[in-house]
Amino acid sequence: MTETQPATSSAPALEVAGLAKSFGSLLVASDVHLRVESGERRGLIGVNGAGKTTLFNMIAGELKPDRGSIGFFGDNITRDSVIQRTLKGLGRTYQVSTLVPSVTVRENLALARGDGRLPSLWQPWQSRLDGDLMTTADQLGLTAVLDETVANLSYGTLRQLELAMVMAQKPRLLLLDEPAAGLSHAERQVLQDILHELPREVTLLMIEHDMEMVLALSDCISVLHQGEMFAEGSPDEIAAHQGVRDIYLGRAND
């Protein structure tokens, strides 16, 4: 490392501090703190309605927090727009995949990797499909369905397409909202292998209900409960954590 280089390499990939959000009288986040180191694989769990997706929406800029700040590799992005965050290297998938239903998988892939500028009005759209993109699509098992209309895809394939599109963007931080939901056992295995093999330049923050997968992939797991981070620790610690077990068994409110 040269002396001119700032200390950002040690800055966390994500630093959420004091984040709060309520929808009317429903308090979804009261004081959320979350620090994810660069290169880390972090699992985010919590019961249905705990506010996990809402937290992602705030990190990605689709929802404005009431309070708090969001740091991204040492850069305060709290006020950045969605597109600015994307261009800085934040990528996400959605719990409910939709994409562009009326066109083919290939055409959707051609829409990946926006660069903040207006795309060509003259070149054919196929010119945006390069070897890199097609390799990613192939890894995710999309080769056979490239010419299918997205509206006709099975749910599992749709999830794979969504993942291919965000991975093509080569994000520095990848937020995955329940990537395994709706996948068959075999598809889950493929997904797990792909995520396992992601280079460490990509930091991963993953919401997932499939505990087996979370435990296998994560370096560290955070538990969101009642608007705050309830616990944080290694997969073994979380699996053994009595409080976390109670939440999942519905006894934490007693």
Binding site: E62, V82, T86, L87, L111, G114, L118, P119, S120
Partner: peptide, 29 residues
Amino acid sequence: WRLYRSPFGLLLLGIQENEQRMRALGHPV
């Protein structure tokens, strides 16, 4: 005819069907 089959034309369709996603993919909607 060129425009409809260009990435720009495709992006317009994408905006019609999923504006939020086009933004998240880094397109100036």
